[in-house]
Design a protein around this nucleic acid. Structure first.
Lengths: 116, 116
DNA sequence: GTTTGCAATCGTAAATCTACGATAAGCGCT
DNA sequence: AGCGCTTATCGTAGATTTACGATTGCAAAC
Protein backbone atom coordinates (compact mmCIF):
# COMPACT_ATOMS: atom_id res chain seq x y z
CA UNK A 1 0.00 0.00 0.00
CA UNK A 2 2.44 2.52 -1.19
CA UNK A 3 4.47 3.42 1.82
CA UNK A 4 6.71 5.97 0.26
CA UNK A 5 9.68 5.39 2.50
CA UNK A 6 10.44 9.04 2.76
CA UNK A 7 13.92 10.11 1.94
CA UNK A 8 14.11 13.04 4.29
CA UNK A 9 12.55 14.65 7.31
CA UNK A 10 10.32 17.70 7.29
CA UNK A 11 11.62 21.15 8.11
CA UNK A 12 9.53 21.19 11.27
CA UNK A 13 10.95 17.89 12.41
CA UNK A 14 14.47 19.10 11.80
CA UNK A 15 14.04 22.38 13.57
CA UNK A 16 12.27 20.86 16.52
CA UNK A 17 15.04 18.30 16.74
CA UNK A 18 17.67 21.02 16.59
CA UNK A 19 16.07 22.95 19.39
CA UNK A 20 15.48 19.86 21.46
CA UNK A 21 19.08 18.88 20.95
CA UNK A 22 20.17 22.29 22.20
CA UNK A 23 18.20 21.62 25.38
CA UNK A 24 19.51 18.07 25.51
CA UNK A 25 22.19 18.80 28.06
CA UNK A 26 21.68 19.66 31.72
CA UNK A 27 24.18 22.49 31.56
CA UNK A 28 22.30 24.18 28.77
CA UNK A 29 18.99 23.81 30.57
CA UNK A 30 20.64 25.33 33.61
CA UNK A 31 21.98 28.21 31.54
CA UNK A 32 18.53 28.92 30.19
CA UNK A 33 17.08 28.91 33.66
CA UNK A 34 19.78 31.22 34.96
CA UNK A 35 19.15 33.63 32.13
CA UNK A 36 15.45 33.47 32.86
CA UNK A 37 15.61 33.93 36.61
CA UNK A 38 17.72 36.99 36.68
CA UNK A 39 17.80 38.91 33.48
CA UNK A 40 21.49 38.85 34.18
CA UNK A 41 23.20 38.21 30.93
CA UNK A 42 26.82 38.43 31.87
CA UNK A 43 28.70 35.38 30.76
CA UNK A 44 31.15 35.51 33.62
CA UNK A 45 28.41 35.04 36.16
CA UNK A 46 27.25 31.91 34.42
CA UNK A 47 30.73 30.51 34.70
CA UNK A 48 30.72 31.33 38.40
CA UNK A 49 27.51 29.42 38.98
CA UNK A 50 28.14 26.40 36.84
CA UNK A 51 30.49 23.51 37.55
CA UNK A 52 32.19 24.05 34.21
CA UNK A 53 35.14 25.92 32.87
CA UNK A 54 34.85 29.21 31.02
CA UNK A 55 35.58 27.70 27.65
CA UNK A 56 32.98 25.00 28.10
CA UNK A 57 30.31 27.49 29.10
CA UNK A 58 31.19 29.58 26.09
CA UNK A 59 30.76 26.54 23.88
CA UNK A 60 27.35 25.76 25.34
CA UNK A 61 26.32 29.35 24.81
CA UNK A 62 27.42 29.08 21.22
CA UNK A 63 25.16 26.08 20.69
CA UNK A 64 22.20 27.77 22.32
CA UNK A 65 22.82 30.78 20.13
CA UNK A 66 23.01 28.58 17.03
CA UNK A 67 19.66 27.06 17.97
CA UNK A 68 18.18 30.54 18.23
CA UNK A 69 17.34 30.25 21.90
CA UNK A 70 19.82 32.76 23.20
CA UNK A 71 21.15 36.09 22.08
CA UNK A 72 24.43 37.76 22.87
CA UNK A 73 25.25 41.42 22.65
CA UNK A 74 28.65 42.88 23.18
CA UNK A 75 28.52 45.35 26.02
CA UNK A 76 31.86 46.95 26.42
CA UNK A 77 34.44 44.46 27.54
CA UNK A 78 31.88 41.85 28.47
CA UNK A 79 29.11 40.07 26.61
CA UNK A 80 25.50 40.30 27.58
CA UNK A 81 23.46 37.14 27.06
CA UNK A 82 19.74 36.84 27.21
CA UNK A 83 16.96 34.64 25.93
CA UNK A 84 15.79 35.08 22.37
CA UNK A 85 12.08 35.78 22.48
CA UNK A 86 11.49 34.87 18.86
CA UNK A 87 13.35 31.59 19.18
CA UNK A 88 11.39 30.59 22.22
CA UNK A 89 8.17 31.45 20.47
CA UNK A 90 9.15 29.05 17.71
CA UNK A 91 10.12 26.37 20.20
CA UNK A 92 6.86 26.75 22.04
CA UNK A 93 4.98 26.55 18.77
CA UNK A 94 6.79 23.49 17.45
CA UNK A 95 6.50 21.60 20.70
CA UNK A 96 2.88 22.63 21.02
CA UNK A 97 2.15 21.37 17.54
CA UNK A 98 3.74 18.06 18.36
CA UNK A 99 1.79 17.73 21.59
CA UNK A 100 -1.39 18.54 19.71
CA UNK A 101 -0.78 15.56 17.47
CA UNK A 102 -0.49 13.18 20.37
CA UNK A 103 -3.82 11.58 21.12
CA UNK A 104 -2.40 10.57 24.43
CA UNK A 105 -1.35 13.89 25.87
CA UNK A 106 -4.45 15.70 24.72
CA UNK A 107 -5.07 17.00 28.20
CA UNK A 108 -7.13 14.21 29.62
CA UNK A 109 -4.32 11.72 29.36
CA UNK A 110 -3.19 8.97 31.65
CA UNK A 111 -6.16 6.70 31.54
CA UNK A 112 -3.83 3.79 31.31
CA UNK A 113 -0.57 2.63 29.82
CA UNK A 114 -2.41 0.35 27.46
CA UNK A 115 -0.90 0.11 24.03
CA UNK A 116 -2.81 -1.03 20.99
CA UNK B 1 28.54 37.78 46.64
CA UNK B 2 28.45 34.17 47.44
CA UNK B 3 27.77 32.53 44.17
CA UNK B 4 27.87 28.92 45.22
CA UNK B 5 29.20 27.53 41.97
CA UNK B 6 26.91 24.59 42.10
CA UNK B 7 28.47 21.20 41.72
CA UNK B 8 25.59 19.48 40.03
CA UNK B 9 22.37 20.02 38.15
CA UNK B 10 18.90 19.58 39.54
CA UNK B 11 16.85 16.46 38.90
CA UNK B 12 14.42 18.47 36.81
CA UNK B 13 17.18 19.86 34.67
CA UNK B 14 18.57 16.41 34.12
CA UNK B 15 15.28 14.81 33.25
CA UNK B 16 14.23 17.61 30.96
CA UNK B 17 17.61 17.37 29.26
CA UNK B 18 17.22 13.62 28.89
CA UNK B 19 13.83 13.94 27.27
CA UNK B 20 14.94 16.81 25.07
CA UNK B 21 17.91 14.76 24.01
CA UNK B 22 15.62 11.93 23.05
CA UNK B 23 13.76 14.34 20.77
CA UNK B 24 17.02 15.79 19.55
CA UNK B 25 17.11 13.82 16.35
CA UNK B 26 14.81 14.25 13.36
CA UNK B 27 14.28 10.53 13.04
CA UNK B 28 13.01 10.27 16.58
CA UNK B 29 10.68 13.21 16.14
CA UNK B 30 9.40 11.54 13.00
CA UNK B 31 8.88 8.28 14.84
CA UNK B 32 6.88 10.04 17.52
CA UNK B 33 4.74 11.72 14.90
CA UNK B 34 4.16 8.46 13.09
CA UNK B 35 3.13 6.79 16.31
CA UNK B 36 0.81 9.69 17.01
CA UNK B 37 -0.86 9.92 13.62
CA UNK B 38 -1.86 6.37 13.26
CA UNK B 39 -2.01 4.46 16.45
CA UNK B 40 -0.04 2.01 14.40
CA UNK B 41 2.60 0.59 16.62
CA UNK B 42 4.19 -1.99 14.42
CA UNK B 43 7.90 -1.51 14.20
CA UNK B 44 8.15 -2.84 10.68
CA UNK B 45 5.95 -0.08 9.35
CA UNK B 46 8.21 2.53 10.84
CA UNK B 47 11.13 1.00 9.02
CA UNK B 48 9.15 1.13 5.80
CA UNK B 49 8.45 4.82 6.17
CA UNK B 50 11.81 6.00 7.38
CA UNK B 51 15.01 6.36 5.37
CA UNK B 52 16.83 4.18 7.85
CA UNK B 53 17.67 0.56 8.27
CA UNK B 54 15.83 -1.75 10.60
CA UNK B 55 18.60 -1.87 13.15
CA UNK B 56 18.89 1.90 13.27
CA UNK B 57 15.16 2.35 13.79
CA UNK B 58 15.31 -0.22 16.54
CA UNK B 59 18.08 1.75 18.20
CA UNK B 60 16.11 4.97 18.05
CA UNK B 61 13.11 3.21 19.53
CA UNK B 62 15.29 1.97 22.33
CA UNK B 63 16.33 5.50 23.17
CA UNK B 64 12.79 6.79 23.08
CA UNK B 65 11.81 3.95 25.35
CA UNK B 66 14.67 4.74 27.72
CA UNK B 67 13.48 8.33 27.90
CA UNK B 68 10.01 7.12 28.80
CA UNK B 69 8.35 8.57 25.74
CA UNK B 70 7.50 5.32 24.03
CA UNK B 71 6.28 1.92 25.10
CA UNK B 72 6.72 -1.42 23.42
CA UNK B 73 4.65 -4.51 23.88
CA UNK B 74 5.37 -7.85 22.34
CA UNK B 75 2.44 -8.92 20.22
CA UNK B 76 3.07 -12.32 18.81
CA UNK B 77 5.91 -12.27 16.34
CA UNK B 78 5.95 -8.50 16.07
CA UNK B 79 6.35 -5.67 18.55
CA UNK B 80 3.72 -3.05 19.12
CA UNK B 81 4.99 0.44 19.87
CA UNK B 82 3.00 3.35 21.13
CA UNK B 83 3.45 6.60 22.97
CA UNK B 84 3.81 6.52 26.73
CA UNK B 85 1.11 8.76 28.16
CA UNK B 86 2.80 9.15 31.53
CA UNK B 87 6.12 10.06 29.97
CA UNK B 88 4.55 12.68 27.77
CA UNK B 89 2.72 14.13 30.74
CA UNK B 90 6.06 14.55 32.46
CA UNK B 91 7.62 16.09 29.37
CA UNK B 92 4.76 18.50 29.00
CA UNK B 93 5.05 19.42 32.65
CA UNK B 94 8.81 19.96 32.63
CA UNK B 95 8.78 21.99 29.46
CA UNK B 96 5.81 23.98 30.70
CA UNK B 97 7.62 24.73 33.95
CA UNK B 98 10.61 25.96 32.02
CA UNK B 99 8.48 28.14 29.77
CA UNK B 100 6.77 29.56 32.82
CA UNK B 101 10.12 30.74 34.10
CA UNK B 102 10.91 32.63 30.95
CA UNK B 103 9.83 36.25 31.23
CA UNK B 104 10.15 36.47 27.50
CA UNK B 105 7.85 33.71 26.38
CA UNK B 106 5.16 34.53 28.88
CA UNK B 107 2.55 34.70 26.18
CA UNK B 108 2.82 38.34 25.20
CA UNK B 109 6.36 37.92 23.96
CA UNK B 110 8.11 39.36 20.96
CA UNK B 111 8.08 43.03 21.76
CA UNK B 112 11.63 43.22 20.55
CA UNK B 113 14.90 41.39 20.48
CA UNK B 114 16.36 43.84 22.94
CA UNK B 115 18.67 42.29 25.45
CA UNK B 116 19.56 43.94 28.74
C1' DG C 1 11.08 -30.24 14.97
C1' DT C 2 11.95 -27.16 11.30
C1' DT C 3 11.21 -23.26 8.81
C1' DT C 4 9.76 -18.41 8.31
C1' DG C 5 9.45 -13.61 9.61
C1' DC C 6 10.13 -9.86 12.68
C1' DA C 7 12.77 -7.37 16.00
C1' DA C 8 16.76 -6.91 19.18
C1' DT C 9 21.51 -7.20 19.74
C1' DC C 10 26.43 -7.39 18.35
C1' DG C 11 30.33 -5.57 16.16
C1' DT C 12 32.09 -1.73 13.54
C1' DA C 13 33.50 2.62 11.65
C1' DA C 14 32.84 7.44 11.16
C1' DA C 15 31.13 11.45 13.02
C1' DT C 16 29.85 14.36 16.73
C1' DC C 17 29.87 15.94 21.62
C1' DT C 18 31.94 17.26 25.94
C1' DA C 19 35.36 18.94 28.50
C1' DC C 20 39.60 21.21 29.47
C1' DG C 21 43.83 24.23 29.25
C1' DA C 22 46.13 27.37 26.40
C1' DT C 23 46.01 30.92 23.29
C1' DA C 24 44.12 34.72 20.79
C1' DA C 25 40.94 38.67 20.19
C1' DG C 26 38.33 42.77 21.71
C1' DC C 27 37.38 46.60 24.67
C1' DG C 28 38.31 50.17 28.15
C1' DC C 29 41.61 52.44 30.93
C1' DT C 30 46.17 54.60 32.10
C1' DA D 1 51.15 52.03 23.18
C1' DG D 2 50.55 49.04 26.86
C1' DC D 3 47.96 46.67 30.53
C1' DG D 4 44.07 44.21 32.55
C1' DC D 5 39.80 42.08 32.16
C1' DT D 6 36.43 39.32 29.67
C1' DT D 7 35.12 36.18 26.14
C1' DA D 8 35.94 33.39 21.87
C1' DT D 9 38.58 30.16 19.53
C1' DC D 10 42.13 26.50 18.96
C1' DG D 11 43.90 22.11 19.82
C1' DT D 12 43.19 17.87 21.96
C1' DA D 13 41.57 13.63 24.31
C1' DG D 14 37.98 10.68 25.63
C1' DA D 15 33.23 9.51 25.48
C1' DT D 16 29.02 9.18 23.08
C1' DT D 17 26.07 8.99 18.89
C1' DT D 18 24.71 7.43 14.48
C1' DA D 19 24.55 4.34 11.04
C1' DC D 20 24.96 -0.08 8.87
C1' DG D 21 25.31 -5.20 7.95
C1' DA D 22 25.40 -9.53 10.17
C1' DT D 23 23.90 -12.34 13.68
C1' DT D 24 20.96 -13.96 17.30
C1' DG D 25 16.54 -14.67 19.59
C1' DC D 26 11.62 -15.53 19.61
C1' DA D 27 6.97 -16.70 18.37
C1' DA D 28 3.89 -18.52 15.05
C1' DA D 29 3.17 -21.62 11.03
C1' DC D 30 4.12 -25.64 8.60
Amino acid sequence: MAFHKRTHFTAQEQQLAAMAKALGHPARVAIVRLLAQRQACVCGELVLELPLSQSTVSQHLKELKAAGLVQGEVDGPRVCYCLDAAGWAVARQLFGDLLAELPVAAGTAATGPVCC
